[in-house]
C-alpha cells in the first residue's frame, strides 16, 4: 500500500466546479484506498462531490491531494491532470 501526494493549481476559470468534481470522484472511486483533498485547511473526502465543492477552489487555488492504495501514483497523476486542465472537455 503506497501513499503519494502533491500540490496542484486549479487552472479552469470556472474553478473546481460540479462537473470536474464529479469526474474527480469517478477517478478517486477507482482506487482501493483513500483519496483526500485540501486547500490548506481541513482534509476532505476525495470520493464525495459535495466535499470537494465545499473547498470552493476557484481558479489559481492550490490544492493538496493525497492518495493511498495500490494504484496511488497513477490516480494522483490523473487527478493532477484534471485539476490543471484549463477547460472542460466539450
Amino acid at each position: 500500500m503506497s501513499e503519494v501526494e502533491g500540490r496542484f493549481v486549479v487552472a479552469s476559470e470556472l474553478g473546481l466546479h460540479a462537473r470536474p468534481a464529479g469526474e474527480f470522484v469517478r477517478i478517486a472511486s477507482g482506487v482501493d484506498g483513500d483519496v483526500e483533498i485540501s486547500r490548506g485547511g481541513e482534509w476532505m473526502n476525495g470520493k464525495s462531490v459535495l466535499s470537494i465543492l465545499s473547498l470552493a477552489a476557484s481558479q489559481g487555488t492550490e490544492v493538496h491531494i493525497r492518495v493511498s492504495g495500490p494504484d496511488a501514483e497513477a490516480v494522483l497523476t490523473a487527478l493532477a491532470a484534471l485539476v490543471e486542465r484549463p477547460h472542460d472537455p466539450a
Binding site: 486547500r39 490548506g40 485547511g41 481541513e42 459535495l50 465545499s54 473547498l55 470552493a56 477552489a57
Partner: peptide, 17 residues
C-alpha cells in the same frame, strides 16, 4: 447542504480556508 455560501469561503473565515 443549505448554506449562506459566503460563510464557506476562506476569506470570510469559512471552513474552505
Amino acid at each position: 447542504n443549505i448554506s449562506v455560501a459566503s460563510a464557506l469561503l476562506p476569506d470570510r473565515g469559512g471552513k474552505a480556508g
